[in-house]
């Protein structure tokens, strides 16, 4: 039994978005197979959606506002709003750490119930570090696609030299780096990209045997972690699991090659 055109019309938009449930998808497809009019309508919907995505203006946040936002938090109780102010990295770090703590606490509390892995607290910290980097105007302290710029930037800021590799040839360009705080210590955070997705890589010295990349999902993020060359590595992103695994493999291979 085919649904009639009126019923189908209401579902076409969700079908074009690939958001229709399986039962209705099957029923709609059997109708499309015999109805040229609804098939043409579906095509128009897809064309229209494509035109919107290509041409509707996307309003990016003005740079002046971006740089003003962190300063708002300096004021008592967060009240304030007034004019533009300048803030150095030091001031940003001053509030970044309490926020990290708050994030860790809130994410952590949600995970307290139920069994936890040995790494549980660290997972929370990594997720918090990633979310925080996406929310504040503080993704990179040193913004550069050149590893010869990024790597020396860490000198004197950390008690180790983080390995920095460029994976642009594999479709994961380096975008920059910053200091972060994990596992009770300052660590290097490297910012890689895949299209519009951000991949945060945390790397710090760790004893222990070399290990393969081990995947993990937490709070909707995909994570890969491994040990190579006396360093512990964590990569986190909203990128799909397959692509993040391939990223982890490339980065791991680069680190092994450098040993």
């Amino acid at each position: 039994m085919n649904p009639n055109c009126d019923e189908v019309r209401e579902l076409l938009s969700a079908y074009a978005d690939a958001e229709l449930d399986l039962a209705r998808t099957l029923s709609l497809e059997s109708h499309l197979a015999v109805c040229a009019e609804c098939t043409a309508r579906l095509q128009r919907l897809r064309d229209f959606s494509r035109v919107l995505r290509e041409r509707a203006p996307y309003h990016r946040m003005p740079a002046a506002l971006k740089s003003r936002l962190p300063g708002l938090l300096d004021d008592d109780d967060g009240r304030a709003a007034a004019g533009p102010r300048q803030h150095g990295r030091g001031q940003i770090l001053q509030w970044a750490l309490p926020i990290a703590a708050a994030l860790t606490l809130s994410v952590g509390l949600n995970l307290l119930i139920g069994s936890r892995r040995a790494d549980g607290a660290l997972v929370d910290e990594v997720v918090a570090g990633h979310v925080r980097s996406m929310m504040v105007a503080h993704l990179d302290d040193v913004a550069s696609t050149d590893r010869h710029t990024v790597k020396p930037w860490f000198a004197g800021k950390l008690d180790y030299a983080p390995p920095v590799f460029d994976l642009a040839a594999h479709g994961f360009p380096l975008a920059g780096g910053r200091l972060d705080y994990l596992d009770h210590r300052a660590v290097a955070a490297l910012d890689y990209r895949r299209g519009r997705h951000v991949i945060n890589v945390f790397v710090w010295p760790a004893a222990g045997a070399e290990s393969e990349a081990e995947p993990l999902t937490n709070s909707g993020y995909n994570i890969e972690r491994w040990t190579v060359g006396g360093m512990r590595w964590w990569a986190i992103s909203d990128l799909n699991a397959g692509e993040l695994t391939s990223f982890a493999e490339q980065l791991r291979a680069a680190a092994i090659g450098a040993e």
Binding site: L65, L69, L73, A81, S106, N110, N218, S219, G220
Partner: peptide, 20 residues
């Protein structure tokens, strides 16, 4: 946006993980 930014940090308890 400025008001939302302040609220986001003030009410961080509301964050339940997931997509930031």
């Amino acid at each position: 946006v400025q008001e939302a930014y302040l609220r986001a940090f003030r009410f961080f308890d509301g964050f339940r993980g997931g997509d930031g």
